[in-house]
Design a protein around this nucleic acid. Structure first.
Lengths: 217, 217, 217, 217
DNA sequence: CATGAATGAGAATTCATTCAT
DNA sequence: CATGAATGAATTCTCATTCAT
C-alpha cells in the first residue's frame, strides 16, 4: 500500500509534468506548425529545461506523437461524451456531425496543423499498421460506424456498408473543416453540418429518376 | 528561324532536365516521404550534381512544390480526359469516381506521401490563398462540381449544394485511398468506387423511414 | 544574494566563453585574414564544436564584428590610458602618436588584417551610419581631436580645423603602420613617430619662403 | 610583317575584350562591392558567357586584380597628367591635392569599394611584396614624393623626409575621401584640399610657441 | 531529478572553375 | 574562340540529443 501510494504520488507528479509538456507542445504547434516546432521552443513554452523533456520523452517524435494523440483523444472523447447524451439513433448521428464540426472549430489552430500539415504516419513511417495514432483514428471511425449501425438496427438507416460510410463521413467532415481553416468558405459549422447530413441521408440522386437501376446492384 | 529553332532546342533540353529532376524528386518522395527528401538524395537519384538542381529550381521548396503540382496536374488531367470520353451525365460521375480511385492506386507511393504527409499550404504558408497548389486542388473540386451540375441539369440528380457534395465526394475518395495506402482494407479500387457511388447516390436513410422530416428542410 | 551570485557565475562563464571564442577568432584572422576565416576554423582554433559558437553569436558576421570591435576597443582603451598619464598638452600628442604606432606594431597580425582587408562597413553595409564599429572609429578620432584641442587651448598649437587634422593624423599613422606591415620600411615605430610629429607640428613649408601667401587665406 | 599585323589584329581584339570585361567588372564592383561581385554577374554585365572570361583571366582573383589595377592606373595617370600641366613647384603640390580629391569624388562608387572594402594584398596575400597592385600604389607615392622633392629643391619646402610626408599626405587624402564616402562630412573636395594643404604646409604648431625645441631635433 | 551548455551530424545554398559542343 | 550547363567543394546555420554538474 505504501509503495503503491508512493508510486501513485510519483505517478501523479510524472503525469503532471507530462501534461505540462504536452500542453506546451500543443501551444507551440498551434503557433508555429509542426515544421517550426522545435524542442527548444517547447521547453521555453513549458518553462522547463530542454533536457527535462528528454526525461519524459525519449525522442522528439515521441513527444509530438503523444501531443497529437492527446489532442485526438480529447477530441474523440468529447465527441463520444456528447453523443452518449442522446438516445435516439438518428439524433445521435446528427449530434455526432454537429459536435465534430463544432469541436474542430473550437480547437482550430491545433487541428489546422494536425489535419493540414501532419499525418498519421510520421511517428512510425515504416510500420504504419503499428501506430497508436492510427489506432486512435480507427477507434474514432469505429465509433462512427457503430453509431450508424445502431440506426440501421433501428430501421432508420438502410442496411449498407457501415465502415465505408463511416470513413466517407469522417473524411467529408475533415474536408469541411479544411475548407474553413483555409478560408475557402463563409459557412458556419452548423450550416456545414446540415448540408453534410442531408447529403449523407438522402444522397444526390433525383428520386424521380429511374435510370440508375443498372448501376446499383 | 534558326534562332527560333535553337531556342526550341534549348527549351527542350531545359524541359527534359526539369522533367528528369522532377521525376527523381517524385521517386525520392515516394521512397522517403517529404520529411526525408533532401536535395542531396534527389541529386543522387537523378544522377546529377547537387548544384545542377539549383540551376533549375532556386529553392528546395520550389522544387518540391513543382513536383507536387506536376503530380497533381498529371492526375487531374488524366481524370478529366477519361471523364470527357463519357457523355451521359450519370456515367460521367461513375467514371470520375472509378478513375480517381484507380489512378490513385497506380501512383500509390507518391500519392501516399502527398495525401498523408503534405499539405496544400507548405509552399506559401503565409498566403495560403495565393498558392498555386491550392488552385490546382480547387480546380479539381470545381471539375467534380461541374460534373455533378451537369447531372442536376439533366434531371438525374436532385438540386442540392454542388460544391459541398463535390468536396465531400473528393474527400471521401481521398479517405478510401488512404485506407488502402495504410493497408486497412482489402477492397479493390473498383469495389470502393461502387460503394462510394451507392452512398453518394442514395444516401443512407432507410426509404421506408419517415422520421427525418424535421431535419431535412 | 544566492541567485545573484549564481547569475554572476553564469555571467562569468559566459564572458569567459565569449572571450575564448573571440580570441580564437582573433588568431584565425591574424593567420588567414578575414577572407579565409571560416566558422569551422574558429571552432577548431577554439577547440570547441562549431555549434557552440552559434550559442554565443547568432551569425558569422556578428562574431567577426565583435572580434573587430573588441580589437579596436582594446587598442583605443590602451591609447587613452597611456595618454591620460601625461598632463602637458604637447607631450600628450607626442605620447599619442608614439603609443598608437607602438601598439599597432604589437598586435601587428590582427591589425594588418583589420586595416588592410577589413572595412568599417562590412557588418552593416546598408546603414553605415548605424554601425557600432564606425562609432568606435569615430570615438578614436574624437579623442585625437580633443587632445589636439587641449593643446590649442593651451596656446601650444595654433587654432585650426581640429577635426581635419585629427583625421589626417590618424590616417597618416595608419599609413605608417601599413608601410611596416607590408615590409616597405625598415624604420622603427618610434622613428616613424618622430617623423610624423615633426610633420604635424611644422608642416613642410620652408619658413624662409614667402610665396604661399595667396594660398593660405 | 603579315604575321606581325595579324598579331596586332588579334592583340587588338584581345585588348578590346579585356577592356570590355574590366569595364563590366568595374561597374559590378561599384554596384555590389567586392564581396558581392561574382563571375556570373560580371559575365552578365559584359553580356558575354561566363566561360569567356576564363579565356582572358585564369582566376577570378586575377580578374579583380586587373580591374583594381586598371582603376588605379587610370587614376594615377590622370593625376600625373594634370600635375604635369603646372610648372611652379608649389602650384604642383596644390594641383596634386586638388586633383586627387576631385578625381576620387568623380569615381566615387568604385573607389569607395576599393578603399573601404578591398586591400592591396588580396590578390597575392602570401607574397605582398610581389604584388603589382602594390607597385602601382608605391609608384603613386613616389610621384607625390618627387613632386614634394621638386619643391624642396626649389627652396619652397624645407628639407625633410619626403617619403614620409608623401605617405602621410596620400593617406590623409584617402582619409578625406573616406569621410565623404561614409557621409561623415559635408565639405566639398576643394574645401578638403584647402584644409589639407594648410596642414601640410604649416603644420599645427603655434609659431609663437617656443617649447617644442627639445622634441624637434 | 533537473539543468542547459555543448555537441556534431546534416541540410541548404553558393559560386569558382571546367569542358563538351 | 565562345558558350553556358554541369560540377562539387566549401560554407553557413540548425537542432535533436547527450551528459557533467
Amino acid at each position: 500500500m505504501t509503495k503503491n501510494s508512493a508510486n501513485t504520488k510519483e505517478e501523479m507528479l510524472r503525469e503532471f509534468r507530462v501534461r505540462e509538456i504536452l500542453d506546451a507542445t500543443y501551444r507551440v504547434v498551434s503557433r508555429h506548425g509542426f515544421q517550426g516546432a522545435t524542442v527548444d521552443r517547447v521547453a521555453e513554452e513549458a518553462k522547463i529545461a530542454k533536457g527535462t523533456i528528454y526525461l519524459y520523452f525519449h525522442k522528439k517524435e515521441e513527444l509530438f506523437k503523444a501531443a497529437v494523440e492527446q489532442g485526438m483523444e480529447n477530441f474523440t472523447n468529447q465527441v463520444r461524451a456528447e453523443v452518449k447524451e442522446v438516445s435516439a439513433p438518428l439524433e445521435k448521428i446528427v449530434c455526432l456531425v454537429e459536435v465534430v464540426l463544432e469541436l474542430s472549430d473550437t480547437n482550430r489552430d491545433f487541428f489546422k496543423m494536425l489535419l493540414l500539415e501532419r499525418n498519421l504516419l510520421a511517428a512510425s513511417p515504416d510500420h504504419p499498421e503499428a501506430s497508436h495514432t492510427l489506432d486512435l483514428y480507427l477507434d474514432h471511425i469505429r465509433f462512427i460506424e457503430e453509431t450508424l449501425q445502431e440506426a440501421v438496427d433501428a430501421g432508420v438507416l438502410r442496411p449498407h456498408d457501415n465502415e465505408a460510410s463511416a470513413f466517407a463521413l469522417s473524411e467529408s467532415m475533415r474536408g469541411c473543416f479544411q475548407q474553413r481553416a483555409l478560408g475557402l468558405t463563409a459557412r458556419s459549422a452548423s450550416e456545414d453540418a446540415e448540408i453534410l447530413l442531408d447529403l449523407l441521408m438522402h444522397g444526390v440522386l433525383n428520386p424521380n429518376y429511374n435510370g440508375y437501376r443498372e448501376l446499383s446492384s
